Computed example of a mutant assay.
Amino acid sequence: MNATAIAAEIRDGISTGRYRHGTRLPAVRALAEEHGVSQQTIAAAYAQLAALGLVRTEPGSGTVVTAGRTAEAHLGSFGPPDLSIPIWKAPSNSEAREATTLVRQLPAPPDMATWGIADTDIVERTRVRWVDDAPVQHKITIVPYELASRRPEGYEGVPPLLAPVGAARMAPPAGVRFADWLGWNVERTDTEISAEAMDQAAAAALGVAEGTPAFRIVSIARDPQGGTVFVTVTTTALHHKLTLSIAG
């Protein structure tokens, strides 16, 4: 077997859960003997997996699996006038959880002007999702402060989008979109999906090296005048799948 075939075999084991997140893979020498190949071949296979963010090799500590089972980043169901923001679909017989890890208010950086956000303060909220204790998704939501500070009708207390880390998550009534609950007039959502190198924040949250290739999903929700209501930037490893349903 060559390095690519061995890497594919291990990648399949990670995808199906045979090699779980945090598992230490066999030592290079042991796996080389098992497959009857050179240690250089195994080292090359591990390097391929590391480049995809599936494992991390540390001198003296061996190679550890940094990914979980393959799951789906479901981008929602398309039907006029809305495309839902990304949600996570965990594999069957698995446990999923998520948490807000950062909430902050700051002036909109200049590069957000390309998203239609400029000359205003924003609220930035970061959430991380895990499946079977493996981090699978890093998501930042950016909202102009004027919209983030809104309270639903009849609601008292801290506006939902200004709630700090650790606060109970506020949710709209069943069947009501979050945007409608807050009185945001969202007419459409434009989504851009690309393969990009992970930035420092996403890489740290997902436990991989900065620069690891990943899916980057930027969704911009707009009002009828084309103004930006909010932006989500979702990062997930190429190991996972993106799905989308289109109705009509």
Score class of each variant (00 low, 15 high):
Ala171His: 12
Asp199Gln: 02
Arg216Val: 04
Val103Ile: 14
Thr235His: 13
Ile14Asn: 04
Pro213Trp: 04
Met1Tyr: 08
Ala209Met: 06
Val131Arg: 12
Pro135Met: 09
Ala148Gly: 03
Pro160Ala: 08
Ala202Thr: 01
Ala8Asp: 15
Val233Lys: 07
Thr23Trp: 02
Asp190Cys: 01
His239Ile: 05
Leu162Ile: 02
Gly60Arg: 09
Pro59Cys: 00
Ala44Tyr: 01
Ser84Gln: 14
Tyr46Glu: 09
Asn185Asp: 15
Glu34Lys: 13
Glu153Asp: 13
Asp111Ser: 08
His239Leu: 10
Pro164Cys: 10
Arg127Pro: 00
Ala163His: 03
Ile246Val: 15
Ala32Lys: 06
Thr236Asn: 10
Ala45Phe: 07
Val64Ala: 01
Ala134Glu: 07
Leu206Gly: 07
Leu75Asn: 03
Thr235Tyr: 12
Trp88Arg: 06
His239Lys: 04
Ala51Met: 02
Pro135Asp: 03
Val128Met: 07
Asp111Gly: 00
Pro213Asp: 03
Leu75Thr: 00
Ala113Asn: 03
Glu124Asn: 05
Ser194Glu: 14
Leu49Trp: 11
Arg97Cys: 05
Glu58Gln: 14
Pro86Trp: 04
Pro91Val: 08
Val128Phe: 10
Lys139Leu: 13
Ser92Asn: 09
Trp181Leu: 06
Gln200Cys: 00
Arg29Trp: 04
Ala209Gln: 11
Asp111Cys: 00
Ile142Met: 12
Gly53Met: 08
Val231Pro: 11
Arg125Leu: 07
His74Lys: 08
Ser149Cys: 09
Phe78Asn: 02
Ala50Asn: 03
Ala8Trp: 04
Ala32Pro: 03
Thr236Ala: 15
Arg222Val: 06
Thr101Ile: 15
Tyr145Met: 13
Arg24Cys: 02
Ala99Phe: 11
Arg56Asp: 13
Met112Thr: 11
Ala51Ile: 00
Thr70Cys: 13
Ala51Thr: 00
Val218Lys: 05
Ala209Val: 02
Val165Ser: 11
Gly183Cys: 13
Trp184Leu: 15
Gly248Ile: 08
Pro173His: 12
Ala45Asp: 09
Phe215Gly: 00
Asp132Phe: 12
Val218Phe: 02
Pro59Arg: 15
Ala108Cys: 12
Leu83Glu: 11
Ala174Gln: 14
Val143Ala: 09
Leu49Met: 09
Val186Trp: 09
Ala205Phe: 06
Ala167Asn: 07
Val103Tyr: 11
Ile246Gln: 11
Val123Leu: 15
Gly211Asn: 02
His240Ile: 02
Ser38Pro: 00
Thr120Ser: 13
Ile14Val: 15
Ala71Ser: 12
Pro110Ile: 04
Met170Arg: 14
Leu242Lys: 05
Ser219Leu: 03
Arg20Ile: 06
Ser84Ile: 01
Val55Tyr: 14
Ser61Trp: 09
Thr141Tyr: 02
Gly226Asn: 08
Val65Pro: 14
Asp82Tyr: 15
Ile6Val: 10
His35Thr: 00
Ala73Asp: 02
Pro224Glu: 07
Ile10Thr: 01
Arg169Ala: 14
Ser61Asn: 06
Val103Ser: 08
Ala118His: 09
Thr120Met: 13
Leu49Arg: 06
Leu54Arg: 05
Ile10Asn: 06
Leu54Val: 05
Pro107Leu: 13
Gly166Tyr: 05
His74Gln: 03
Tyr46Met: 08
Pro86Cys: 02
Gly79Ser: 14
Asp223Ser: 12
Phe178Trp: 12
Arg216Glu: 01
Pro152Arg: 04
Ala47Tyr: 08
Ser38Trp: 03
Ala47Leu: 10
Thr66Gln: 14
